[in-house]
Simulated scan of single mutants.
Amino acid sequence: MKRTLRHILTLAACLAAFAGCMKWDYGTTEDFQASERGLFITNEGNFQYGNASLSCYDPETKHVENEVFFRANGFKLGDVAQSMTIRNGVGWIVVNNSHVIFAIDVDTFKEVGRITNFTSPRYIHFLSDEKAYVTQLWDNRIFIVNPERYEITGYIECPGMTMESGSTEQMVQYGKYVYVNCWSYQNRILKIDSETDEVVGELTVGIQPTSLVMDKNNKMWTITDGGYEGSPYGYEAPSLYRIDAEKFEIEKQFRFELGDWPSEVQLNGTRDTLYWINDDIWRMQVEAERVPVRPFIEYRDTKYYGLTVDPRNGDVYVADAIDYQQQGVVYRYTARGELVDRFFVGIIPGAFCWK
């Protein structure tokens, strides 16, 4: 299961975090000119194998290019690619166990800069061209960076965490406040004042909230995985939560069955429909009063690992990690649930980013 796997991998990363810096060996390069619109897939790769990679898919032509970072730059992306964000034509790729964030030109895939010396970075959230937050695993701080200078400029101390239990994940913003879910061995959403860079509030939810998105009504949604049987932090049935961003309080809790493992909450382009993975792929309107009884896309006896929705036409893309060893597959469905394409990417495709 996705979160269990990530927990094991990142625990090992903690033990090896400062054992040495990742070395990049430069080789021959290729020239690319990507289409105006496309979908990036970050492939995590296997922990400590340094085989993370980046794929790029053109929805119009249904053409995929794999290993584009390596082919454009002449060196591997690194160890465990976690996430990617695009801002002003620059793609920011967060590479967890290599403790680095690469900045690339989204048309040529060539590196334009990098920020190093993180603990175990997870996600980056931009406040301006000169300021961004970077969440961490196994660190009780959120890092503040200057993207223009590619440097770390400060830290936000997170209350109730130690270096061993620290965990901050995805971020959304409402006004001047940035909200972040705390996942591994945590059960909170933190509220950060982006002007003072201080945590000014926290909200308790279920055990291990795995995702965080903001819908059209300024309601935040998070889904908890409930931990696992035998966990020292506890084990409970997971839940989906709707949270009012302005009041910072829970409005609705949708409970799952004990033993379910929901994850990867996503929104469509109009932010009025939720999608998530719980063996099957599920879909629900944000105003719904109960979760659906039938899935949108049925389970295929495989390992659904990542999920995204095309913001333009509502097509749904599902990443299949297969056995975590071979190339993964991405399935593309229409908004009606019809399969229209499937393509191979890298090892353990985990996150998507729309250009």
Rank of each mutant, 00 (worst) to 15 (best):
I347K: 09
V180R: 03
D310M: 08
V145C: 04
F143P: 00
R294G: 03
V199Q: 07
T28S: 15
D315E: 02
E249R: 13
H99P: 00
F118I: 01
T4V: 11
S120E: 04
V145H: 03
Y333S: 11
F343A: 09
G226Q: 13
D215H: 06
W183K: 02
F296Q: 07
D107K: 14
E169V: 01
V293T: 13
S165L: 08
T210L: 09
V309D: 03
Q327E: 13
G337M: 03
V316Q: 05
D244K: 14
I101Q: 06
D323P: 03
Y133N: 00
Y333T: 08
Q285C: 08
E202M: 15
N88H: 15
M220R: 06
P292A: 10
G206V: 10
G350A: 08
W282G: 04
A72C: 06
A17T: 04
N140L: 01
I104R: 09
N140M: 02
G328R: 06
F248G: 06
D225K: 11
V112G: 10
D323C: 08
I348Y: 06
E289Y: 14
I156L: 13
P159H: 09
E151V: 01
H63K: 15
Y155E: 04
M161C: 10
R71E: 13
T168Q: 05
Y241V: 00
T270D: 14
W261A: 13
K252S: 15
W221N: 07
G306D: 05
F102Q: 01
C14E: 10
E198C: 08
M1I: 13
V318W: 05
Y185H: 10
W183V: 02
P59W: 15
Y241D: 00
K62R: 11
L39P: 00
Y26S: 11
T334H: 06
N73H: 11
I243C: 15
E195V: 03
T162E: 05
E249C: 11
A335E: 09
D260N: 12
C182H: 03
C158K: 10
W261F: 14
S184P: 00
N278E: 06
G227M: 14
F109A: 06
I250F: 15
D301P: 00
T42F: 09
T10W: 12
R141Q: 05
S231E: 12
D58L: 11
A335Y: 13
N313Y: 12
K62E: 02
T273V: 14
I142S: 05
E130T: 09
K191A: 09
P147N: 05
F352D: 02
Y241L: 03
N181W: 03
S167A: 09
Y304G: 09
L307C: 07
R290Q: 15
F344H: 12
E264T: 08
G166W: 01
Q326P: 00
Y26H: 12
A17S: 09
A16S: 10
I322S: 03
L9K: 14
P121L: 04
Q208H: 08
D280M: 10
A288K: 13
F69V: 04
P292E: 07
N51Q: 09
E148S: 12
G201Y: 15
E236C: 01
D323F: 14
F102K: 04
S211Y: 07
W354P: 00
R188M: 12
V90P: 09
Q33D: 07
H99K: 09
F254S: 08
